[in-house]
Design a protein around this nucleic acid. Structure first.
Lengths: 153, 153
DNA sequence: TACAAATGCTTTGAGAGTCAAATCATTTTA
DNA sequence: TAAAATGATTTGACTCTCAAAGCATTTGTA
């Protein structure tokens, strides 16, 4: 029992500590080597659908609008994002993925798909349900901790 | 089936994207509010055992020695880390956790324990095996991707 | 209708984390 | 003993981040 506990701990710690770096490295193998993991997450948040305003994307990413402005400056410069002012309300800035940006989006999506496939390839339906429940528990635990913190903000 | 796939993807993405922030927030509730998650990871890498040199800790953390030097400067200033030159080979710098640093180490360890306990408290032995196997698969996947990258470094 | 308030975004200043390259001190090797 | 190797620090530059100040536009109201 103790052994299972230790194994699980080790797996989670490794996963949590390394995940961002590994994800970035995995993505950088290919043609998009001038993108950081942060920038990829911005592209992911904008999404391939219709244009979005700065505020909503910043809220989704849990960063300030000022931080997002700077990130978008760079992504526009690198031609992954298009930025236009809204005609109906000229305060609003609309951002959307360029063709190049959409390509990155799909590439990142594929990375996730591969990851999931690798994860579940040897699992039965029953086992998958178990996995989902366990991951749900972890998420709940963090959420609880997180909200506790937020009260003190 | 597709639904299970989507749920799993969502859970993993959420977990991976939020994990560092949530961990930092959870840890900052308490007395060690002047430590970043990065600094806590440095303390974790040094460990509570005997003193270690800069190179090996930097290698474990996958950062350059220069970056570690700066981190250690701050941790020494904040009294979480002791730094001495090795007598036998005066090129080598030995770093170790101070009592205060060891306290943080144990606190962080406890956080992980709590996380794991929450996760497994509702799982049977059988379910735990599934979780371990799935997480192992994810780790393997990343490792494979990661090593692939390293060839190009 | 004009002007104050609110809204949406950008800019600025500052701090942390990171790297590569230059530098310094010490030890090893030829 | 001089050159090379090793281990760490320093320096300069970049990214990511925030808070606060500033700017342009729209909304609300007297």
């Amino acid at each position: 029992m103790n052994n299972i506990y230790g194994t699980l701990n080790e797996l989670l710690v490794k996963l949590f500590n390394d995940i961002l770096q590994i994800e970035e490295d995995a993505l950088k193998i290919d043609e998009f080597s001038n993108l950081s993991i942060t920038e990829i997450h911005v592209l992911e948040a904008i999404g391939p659908e219709k244009a979005r305003n700065m505020s909503s994307v910043a809220r989704d990413l849990d960063i300030t609008i000022g931080t997002l402005t700077i990130a978008i400056n760079n992504l526009v410069r690198k031609a992954y994002v298009d930025r236009v002012r809204c005609d109906k309300d000229r305060r609003i800035v609309l951002i959307s993925l360029s063709d190049k940006g959409k390509k990155v989006y799909r590439h990142h999506e594929k990375f996730h798909e591969e990851m999931i496939n690798t994860t579940i390839s040897r699992l039965s339906d029953e086992e998958m349900k178990v996995l989902i429940s366990a991951l749900g528990n972890i998420n709940s635990y963090f959420k609880e901790k997180y909200n506790h913190k937020k009260q003190y903000k």
